[in-house]
């Protein structure tokens, strides 16, 4: 399934790539609202860029909290994130170059 690499998608992928693995943590990392993050997670998972699983119950019990669903990037997710970031870097370079040349004129 194809997915459009939107701003939100990129933010969520980056957050997971940076190790934020739970829904609410991703909200905190990206600053997006729950009504944005969760639908985005479902969408991206369906597109195959994410994979979700329940953490081990024992781990959860040890820290005295219920087990949570955690999200990880798939290989394709990592590729997509890298592609998006390199495109973004290109764009940034292009824009700043353009601005610099304009400023110099």
């Amino acid at each position: 399934m194809q997915i459009r690499m939107t701003h939100i998608t990129a933010l969520v992928l980056r957050a997971i790539g940076d190790g934020y693995r739970y829904g609410f943590d991703i909200m905190d990392a990206t600053g997006l609202a729950s009504g944005t993050v969760y639908p985005a997670l479902r969408r991206i998972e369906r597109a195959g860029l994410l994979r979700s699983r329940w953490e081990a119950a024992t781990a959860a019990l040890d820290s005295g909290r219920p087990r949570r669903r955690l999200y990880e990037l798939t290989a394709e997710g990592r590729r997509s994130l890298a592609a998006a970031e390199s495109r973004l870097a290109d764009a940034r370079r292009f824009l700043s170059g353009r601005l610099a040349s304009e400023r110099g004129r």
Partner: peptide, 16 residues
């Protein structure tokens, strides 16, 4: 505030 997104999430699950 955190829970306020739940209805939208649930609704989108249904429509999907």
């Amino acid at each position: 505030r955190r829970a306020s997104g739940a209805p939208l999430d649930a609704w989108l699950m249904r429509r999907r």
